[in-house]
Design a protein around this nucleic acid. Sequence first.
DNA 1: GCAAAAGTGTTTGACGTACACCCATGG
DNA 2: CCATGGGTGTACGTCAAACACTTTTGC
Lengths: 237, 237
Amino acid sequence: MSNKTSPWSKDWYKEHDPIYIATDCIIFGFDEGILKLLVFKRRVEPQKGAYSLIGSFVKLNESVTDAAKRVLEEITGLKNVFMEELRTYNEVMRDPGYRCISIGQYALIRISDYDNELVEKHGAIWYPFNELPELVLDHDIMVKDALTRLRRKARYQPIGFELLPEKFTIPQLQNLYEAIYQKQMDSRNFRKKVLSFGVLIKLNEKDKLSSKKGAFLYKFDYDKYQQLVASGINFEV
Amino acid sequence: MSNKTSPWSKDWYKEHDPIYIATDCIIFGFDEGILKLLVFKRRVEPQKGAYSLIGSFVKLNESVTDAAKRVLEEITGLKNVFMEELRTYNEVMRDPGYRCISIGQYALIRISDYDNELVEKHGAIWYPFNELPELVLDHDIMVKDALTRLRRKARYQPIGFELLPEKFTIPQLQNLYEAIYQKQMDSRNFRKKVLSFGVLIKLNEKDKLSSKKGAFLYKFDYDKYQQLVASGINFEV
DNA sequence: GCAAAAGTGTTTGACGTACACCCATGG
DNA sequence: CCATGGGTGTACGTCAAACACTTTTGC
């Protein structure tokens, strides 16, 4: 199976086997109180019609991160999205086509911001997390891994904000955490906790969409957050 | 820069660029109360004489995990070592030789068990963590990442045991944690905490090497640990 | 008998958790 | 005027952190 020919000239590398590298994006969104995932209905063979994550091969002249950013922008129109490497999926037989290692990356999207036309044009669909169809290859495992990571990560870093609009209310934030952890939380304790970190700026506006009284909007204080992290503070929600 | 020729036949893959994949191992050991790392003095070009981590290219017919296990056994003689993927190092220019992505994996070794002859034969050296020489490429970053991960991981999983002999004393265990976190701990609180999990089995033997009174030996109860994890218990040391 | 490490309990403060009522407003 | 979600405070228990002395034994 080892292939000693190589398209490249340097002798030192020649003895080794180059491998195809892909990256697959596990893209989370939060909308109408539910956690969603952006999946893709394949319009070409192989496995036409099946659902998969959004991914791409990594090119010789781009980093894996760049590849993922490229795909993400292609499909959602968004740049500067929160994204993080999950792990590699490197089993020899994971892809029946040919030996191909995929690097899973999960991304958090402000679902209010993405370009819906682009998304539809590419055959991508936002699926509620609890109603996901089966996905090709090992993509189901990637999704499971990503949720595990999101849950762990959200406990000690306030990444929840990445999924919400810039201005959000405390009840919205609580809904998000309830969706991530799939459990109800006490509103008094939740509010106390998130405000105690001192990284939320209360605005003079209210959001009246979900109640008659209206809830105050807040925004995330990135500078303050950086300071606190630098001084070694621990966030746990 | 894109290279459209390919050594493989399937058309679908032909359009893409295969890339070299390597894995580098960040191997921790614990000896004489200090945390150590297994590094390697290169005996061939490029960078002959420089220090690096131990690594290998990943072959077409092996998974990344298998590749790392292969290297690890080659150099230490050990199988069944605790090992975990760290992350990928995928910058386009990280390796001046050719485009090569490396997958960092960290491993924990019982320093009492490894085969010293093998290690020396391969030019590998155990270095105290605080006196590491500069390493080639981005290996310094890998080491830093691995330590960060080890610290985080050791907080909620009892992986410390992987670095100690099968039978160990509580003071030894405390030394290890002090080495990992680089801070002193209170022996009464430490003992109380680790015993409270109920995953240590007290033996009827004492270790007299480090004190006249002698300290009781314990061993780790893997079964009990599995049960507790399954029932959702949280370990925090 | 003394030096050196092992082993043992208690007190205090912080924080997580549980819990119930009033407020503001659109309809 | 009432239904709906927003907002607030307190009491209790748990657990982490601080802290000092006795025990054993090789030399």
